[in-house]
Simulated assay, not measured.
Amino acid sequence: MNFEKKLALTITSTACILTSMMAPVSAAKFKFSYSGGNVLNPNDVVTASGILTTSAYDPATNSYEIIDITGTRNGQAIDGLLASGTFLDNNNLLFTGFPKVDEFGFAYIIGETSYNVFYTYDYVEIGQQGFFTGYPLTSFSITPIPESSLIIGILSVTALVTINKINARSAHLRNKRQLPLGIGDKGNA
């Protein structure tokens, strides 16, 4: 491979890798799931999962603001996100480090019942349907959903590596065919 091709391959690979590593500058999506049980009644359990949509990452606060939610809680569809400050002082912030939510957490509604998921020494869900319910959460997960630019970057790097290997193999075979008779040919020796 000549110098220009190697340089182009190096520049393209570097650009793809750097693009795939950049923090999102637009809205991001995160998968969430959690489960737990009522301390007083082990048969009373909660499981929830879905997608959180956020605004752009704010480096000053190291957080995203949750602007939408979809998913289910105990098989019921989540109706929507509650505005910040409307249930137990929720702020709807999602942090990149630990914990993923603070002591104010994010809140959503299903029918007439509001729920707040927050962190105070552990992750907890509090619900209100005329009376309060509470669940210490035994599992809690929030993971980013890769952006299409990340997927395109990974696919581009994979394609470039594959093309490079194919070109190297082709060059090897071309060089082998150009050798004088008897050299490199075990059948003629």
Rank of each mutant, 00 (worst) to 15 (best):
I142D: 02
G97S: 09
Q129K: 09
V124Y: 11
I109H: 02
P99G: 04
E125C: 14
E112N: 14
F95D: 02
F140H: 05
G134R: 08
T133D: 11
V101S: 00
E103Q: 14
N90T: 08
N92A: 05
A107E: 08
D122G: 15
L93A: 09
T133W: 07
T133K: 03
F106H: 13
G85H: 02
I142A: 01
Q129M: 12
L93T: 10
Y121P: 02
T96N: 12
P99F: 09
N92R: 02
T133N: 08
Q128A: 11
I126L: 10
L93N: 13
F104H: 15
S114Y: 13
F87S: 05
P136D: 03
T138N: 13
Y121L: 15
K100G: 03
S114T: 15
S114V: 14
F132H: 06
F106M: 08
K100R: 15
Y108G: 02
I109E: 11
I142C: 01
E103R: 07
E112L: 12
F131N: 09
F98M: 10
F140P: 05
L93W: 05
T113C: 05
L94F: 12
I110T: 13
F95N: 01
E112Q: 14
T86D: 09
E103G: 12
V101D: 04
Y123R: 00
L88H: 07
Y121I: 11
N116E: 07
L137M: 07
S141F: 00
S141E: 13
I110F: 09
F131Q: 13
T120Y: 14
N90F: 11
Q128R: 09
